[in-house]
Design a protein around this nucleic acid. Structure first.
Lengths: 326, 326
DNA sequence: CACTGTAACTGGAGCGCTCTAGTCGCGCGC
DNA sequence: GCGCGCGACTAGAGCGCTCCAGTTACAGTG
């Protein structure tokens, strides 16, 4: 920086002004500084810049690496943060790196706020975290003082799925459950309330989960049911579960959607592939990411208390795995 | 830090020593400092620590968020970096965030080395990058001065796949190509050399790609072939492609493996699910990650020039999508 | 018992920025 | 012609650490 200043014939402070895009530098000087920096291959050091600044303007994001839907969300978070002039710092959760560790790393960086994607942190930990800095939980609904929640209206999504199936003429609709996964409880609730409201026969849940394998397991349970007792349609916890489920029942000789209709949840990219064409409930990754950043930013800048949990509306996407029961 | 020092009745320098785990603090003092820090909820600021230090000991990692195999690799990178006492800094590539941008962010952080996972950067950019700091390309083979490459022996993987199929009695084996994806050229080459060596009839490539959709497209091409001209076995560019392919041909009524055998590449988690049970060529994510870190670390610390491209042996995993031709 | 070596600890100068409180010209209004 | 305001620019004190050069205390040595 010193060198750039010398080369441009100005003070270090001026170089700083130019690189921060702050006011107080004439157009000519600005150009000279930029030219000098280019000649010298100078690029400001963000570490130092953050140290000197009062605010770091960093938002930490904890996510599961390799999770398709988390990836979609990260894309949206990066974009939204750029708009609010925040910088996102990624901290991944992997089989060998726990969420606690991921959070700790972000705290040591002095992030100003933290976004947890599909967090599995226990409430006390969340509560402590929220006491230290603005915390927003995306996808997972938590009732913890100080933690902002941004999520899809999971219950509504399942209501839409069930209503769609009911509209096609299905009456025996079963839900492949997500267990303790984020959003699973709400989806369960949405399924039950829709079934009740539409006057459909209540049916036991199928044990599901969030992977294809869980879906296949649910399929095995369904296939083991006495004939005539099985459902004509299934709502799955998520797309991966639905995909595994469809694959397994087809393998067993059932035709989808002719003999069994299936609805997923998320609308991951694979769901839209022509050969899969899964009917599913779409989560709006873009809105979720944007709102998460806005939540954190408003706590940080605005000061006005963010309202209740932010709930994003899901949208049913009808493709080729649902149809009228035979 | 000042406060912690005061509370423990020592100097700031001593607190620093304790937190860095450096020598020069008695056991008693160490405990007192730690206790004081705990009372005050103090945690050292990494930004400042990195600034003060001569070395940042940060390794930047550029990866595609949401890519299943990249996720496996990140896990391994985190683990390996911890061993060498380096810190990994993630920078994701998403539809809206280019690889160039991801790299730029890491440079501004003053990473000491950079690991590119499945990079698509053009050679000149790689070359320039390698000129600035140790650069290692994982998965993608590049012939650029100064860039270390850590990859799977893709050609060998395909040789194993073809040999396995040949051993089962297949003669008409076709490859669903990966186009310009990292590793695709080598896999193509491995396929061709194996076919030649085993004296099998050369067959035109199937246009594939790296997603399920590409696999399904390859399946469509295969299904359009005149009967008798089609292959009895297919090697796919990767698992996702293989999965899409299997799904599509089954949908068309073909039985896998009875009428058509299929081999994937990568061994992503989904490949091992019981209901999928894809025969595939396993890439050793753990070894790849470890070697990538070692490469960078040896350039940084050792000074001894790292050797030729590091090639990790793949391993065929036989599951249920391959069998003898009928 | 002076002398050395060592372990434990401290002071203070950086690291590369930011940012406040200035200084310096200069055009403008009255 | 004097004061004033304003834009352009600078000096220098941080930010929270690290790390080097000491200093001190104390056991060991001849």
């Amino acid at each position: 920086m010193e060198d750039v200043a010398a080369r441009a014939g100005v003070s270090r402070a001026l170089v700083s002004i130019v690189f921060r895009g702050a006011v107080g530098a004439s157009e000519g000087t600005r150009e000279r500084v930029l030219a000098a920096a280019a000649d010298l291959g100078y690029q400001p050091d963000r570490r130092a810049s953050r140290l000197g600044r009062t605010r770091t303007r960093m938002l930490g994001v904890v996510f599961g690496v390799g999770h398709a839907f988390h990836g979609d969300l990260i894309d949206s978070l990066y974009a939204a943060a750029a708009v609010s002039d925040y910088e996102v710092v990624l901290s991944g959760v992997t089989p060998r790196r726990s969420e606690e560790e991921a959070v700790r790393a972000l705290l040591a960086e002095r992030c100003e706020g933290i976004v947890l994607v599909g967090s599995a942190l226990p409430s006390p930990a969340l509560s402590e975290l929220a006491g230290r800095l603005p915390t927003v939980s995306v996808l997972r609904d938590v009732r913890v003082e100080g933690v902002d929640v941004v999520r899809t209206d999971d219950a509504e999504g399942l209501r839409q799925a069930v209503t769609h199936l009911h509209g096609l003429g299905h009456r025996r609709i079963v839900h492949a459950d997500g267990g303790r996964a984020p959003g699973a409880a709400q989806r369960r609730r949405g399924y039950r309330s829709a079934v009740r409201r539409l006057g459909l026969p209540p049916m036991p849940l199928l044990p599901g989960g969030l992977t294809e394998e869980d879906g296949a397991r649910a399929a095995a349970v369904l296939l083991g049911l006495p004939p005539g007792e099985g459902p004509t349609a299934v709502t799955a916890f998520n797309d991966r579960c639905a995909l595994g489920f469809v694959d397994a029942v087809r393998r067993a000789g059932l035709k989808v959607p002719e003999q069994l209709s299936v609805v997923g949840f998320d609308d991951i990219r694979a769901a839209s592939y022509a050969h899969i064409a899964l009917t599913t409930v779409r989560q709006d990754a873009d809105a979720l990411g944007r709102l998460a950043i806005e939540r954190a930013a408003s706590r940080l800048d605005g000061g006005e208390p963010p309202g209740n949990p932010v709930v994003v509306a899901p949208a049913l996407v009808v493709r080729a795995t649902t149809g009228a029961p035979r």
